[in-house]
């Protein structure tokens, strides 16, 4: 990379860090203004709503299968079902993920064996 490209990399790196860190500095000042016991009440209500909705959007993006054919969608559906079933039983974080990946993988493997 030449000097210009390094400058571009550093600009993107600093810009991204600023976008991640500066809003925190702003929010901490706002929370401090609310006194010794800052909490959720000090947060703008729209911000508290946006957090879970961003996670839901991330889920939507990640659900789009790499291969958009019957196998890809079926594997996704089975993986989602397995994740939810195990989550209902365990209410944990790790096991539902393991179950989802295994179920997803089994559908892909079976499809390959049949194909």
């Amino acid at each position: 990379m030449n000097a210009g490209m390094w400058l571009a990399v550093m600009s993107v790196a600093l810009g991204t860090l600023a976008m991640r860190a500066l809003p925190l500095v702003w929010m901490r000042r706002r929370l401090r203004r609310f006194g010794d016991e800052p909490g959720l009440d000090a947060m703008p209500p729209w911000l508290g709503v946006l957090g879970p909705l961003m996670i839901a959007a991330l889920l939507g993006v990640s659900l789009a299968p790499q291969r958009q054919d019957l196998v890809g969608w079926l594997a996704t559906l089975v993986g989602v079902a397995a994740t939810l079933i195990v989550w209902r039983r365990t209410r944990a974080l790790g096991w539902p993920v393991v179950a989802g990946v295994i179920a997803f993988g089994l559908v892909v493997i079976v499809a390959r064996l049949w194909g």
Binding site: L59, S62, L63, Q66, T83, V101
Partner: peptide
């Protein structure tokens, strides 16, 4: 092909 499904599964368990 299979491992990236860990991400939607994790988001699902979080959500």
């Amino acid at each position: 092909e299979v491992m990236p499904f860990a991400l939607p599964a994790l988001f699902l368990a979080l959500l």
